[in-house]
């Protein structure tokens, strides 16, 4: 159970819990935020995956775990958008259609959470969904790392690439040819696609966001590229632009229902902003490929952790629940620590090479 005072629990009902958490809890959230930020700054993804499961395992009710996770995503999206203040090549028409679709999807996800909570099933269902999500993405990332594929996948540096060398993926071309339900819209990069395809993609990723409290970019960006045919630079910027709005509206709706706990979000965001600077700086020094395998392993450990925690909750074992929480936070700490350690050792090695030897 959360270590906050009983007063914080009653304040939660009104949707405001301004630092109602104990100092130890705030310190824990700052530390966890730092770890999440390092991962996000380094890999460009993986922050929000861990927040909601950790909150669930700490005993927060599902609407608070998901709502606060979403508010955290909103905050980090605002910071990321400000960093890429020209946002590369945003397609505002695409962004606008996606904001509408994503927001409705988030609201559907949110209503589902509250409905399941009224049945006492929300924690269990969301935990199972996370086991599948973390396990699936963990397997994908680990397989990529073992194959030795170069690069970090889609990241925000791609926002600066030129549209002229872009080629629409075959699957997107097929979708554009097959689905011709009006209205058809023309997007940047000369992409002509049905607005319904865009809305469907946005809605589906919105439901994921609203139900799990994740940013959804890890699905929305590949979906924009492979299902809609959006050029990568446009996908990066437009995704950021639209999640600020849909995440903000989603957080607002969760907040109205008492799902956003400022005592969680504020320290998490603070820690993560610092961590993201460390993670980003590390990308210039450390090769991501070497650590990618650890990242995949961390996601897989996270899947196992959530599973253990959920079994513990089901059979009423505090030990298993605690073990799950320790594993999810511990695996994130190990990977973030690996990034920092490798950065420091690389810097030391560089400095030693620069020191002239006395002949």
């Amino acid at each position: 159970m959360p270590a906050s005072s009983p007063a914080a629990v009653t304040v939660l009902d009104s949707g405001l819990s301004l630092f109602g958490s104990s100092p130890e809890l705030i310190a824990l959230f700052v530390g966890f935020g730092l770890v999440v930020g390092i991962l996000f700054g380094f890999f460009g993804m993986g922050g929000s995956f861990l927040v909601t499961p950790a909150l669930l395992m700490m005993g927060y009710p599902a609407p608070v775990a998901v709502g606060s996770g979403m508010a955290f995503v909103f905050g980090t999206a605002v910071i990321a958008s400000l960093k890429h203040h020209d946002l590369g090549q945003v397609d505002y028409k695409l962004g606008g259609i996606m904001i509408a679709g994503t927001t409705v999807g988030i609201e559907v996800g949110r209503v589902s959470v509250y409905y399941l909570e009224s049945l006492g099933l929300a924690g269990g269902v969301i935990s199972v969904a996370y086991v599948l999500l973390l396990g699936g993405i963990g397997l994908m990332v680990t397989r990529e790392a073992l194959k030795g594929d170069g690069g970090r996948g889609i990241d925000h540096e791609d926002a600066d690439r030129d549209l002229s060398d872009y080629e629409i993926p075959a699957i997107a071309k097929r979708i554009q040819k097959t689905v011709r339900i009006p209205p058809m819209v023309t997007l940047r990069g000369d992409v002509r696609v049905s607005a319904w395809v865009i809305t469907a993609v946005a809605f589906a990723t919105g439901v994921l966001s609203g139900f799990l409290g994740v940013g959804g970019g890890f699905i929305r960006m590949p979906a924009m590229i492979y299902a809609i045919g959006v050029p990568v630079p446009v996908a990066v910027g437009t995704d950021l632009f639209e999640i600020v709005f849909s995440g903000g509206i989603g957080s607002y709706l969760y907040g109205q229902g008492g799902g956003v706990d400022l005592g969680i979000v504020a320290p998490l965001l603070f820690g993560s902003a610092l961590g993201a600077r460390i993670g980003s700086a590390a990308t210039a020094i450390v090769d991501a490929d070497g650590i990618k395998g650890y990242f995949g392993g961390m996601l897989l450990a996270g899947a196992v952790a959530v599973g253990i925690g959920e079994v513990g909750s089901y059979v009423g074992s505090d030990l298993l629940e605690t073990a799950g929480l320790v594993l999810v936070i511990g695996s994130a700490v190990v990977v973030a620590g690996a990034i920092v350690y490798t950065t420091v050792t690389s810097l030391r090695a560089t400095r030693h090479r620069q020191i002239p030897t006395a002949d």
Partner: peptide
Amino acid sequence: MAGLEIPTWDPETAILIGSILIEAVVLYVG
């Protein structure tokens, strides 16, 4: 499924989300 909600003006929630927004801006600038 229970009705989807349309955001309505609620000062407390607006302050809550607004403070997260302000914190994000401050952290970016700082």
